[in-house]
Design a protein around this nucleic acid. Sequence first.
DNA 1: ATTCTTATTGACAATCATTATCAGTAAGGC
DNA 2: GCCTTACTGATAATGATTGTCAATAAGAAT
Lengths: 134, 134
Amino acid sequence: MSETVKRNTKQKSAVRHALSEAVGFVSAQQLFLVLKNHGSSTSLATVYRALNDLVSSGEADSLQSADGEYLFRNCGKGHHHHLICRECGQTVEIEAEKVESWADQVATSHGFASPTHTIDIFGTCGPCQKPVAT
Amino acid sequence: MSETVKRNTKQKSAVRHALSEAVGFVSAQQLFLVLKNHGSSTSLATVYRALNDLVSSGEADSLQSADGEYLFRNCGKGHHHHLICRECGQTVEIEAEKVESWADQVATSHGFASPTHTIDIFGTCGPCQKPVAT
DNA sequence: ATTCTTATTGACAATCATTATCAGTAAGGC
DNA sequence: GCCTTACTGATAATGATTGTCAATAAGAAT
């Protein structure tokens, strides 16, 4: 087995921190810009690499936006789902035990093994529902 | 309002037909190849255009694969969700009234308006669970 | 602290799905 | 058949993500 030992680098920490500061889900490109504006010289490729590491280590969550972009979010907790404002990206974590088990049942009752699922709810949050002041 | 009158073209019919023949979800690229192999000269761009038309007219369903590709499926019926084999792409349509209402409740209880949701279940279907014969 | 190994980085090229452009073609109403 | 213009095909453009590879720097050992 190739068990490469991970190292702690400034860049990875910077990405981790930027992600923890972000509200809701953010794209790798957005994080890259944030870091840049804060004076970090972390490269875009490294942002992608760091985010992938964070996701695979369970420190971050990812999902795809409606136009196919990957979005990330700081998320140490266990499995859960999200309610996302389609305007501002604000995110609410939701529990869905019933739905979880429902999904597993549906899968197994159809003979499908090792089920996983994608469940996300989108809506317009309170503040974003207010008419835009011209 | 610009209400451009849609026309029926051979190409669009070809895409519609190819989609109706397809098993499970297929990508635009796959459909393009199928059409090509069947002698159709329909261009890739047109396949994309036709698919988008079909989706917006409710004749087709779309979702994103794990690697960000858009997948399409012939689907005239109302709102429903899918159980998809991650090996062969076979699809089972599932009803989820409970989950639908659950999703709406969650959204409104958090002050989110006009909720929509993404719910898909992935698994390995019976046939694909069999060990591969060498 | 210095040395050494190699994981990680940065810069940039390469991919790849999807979309835009635009001149030519062909539905479908007359 | 004629005319308007939606649609198509070919191809360039876009844009997010990944691969390449020499240079750099973590972290263990000395």
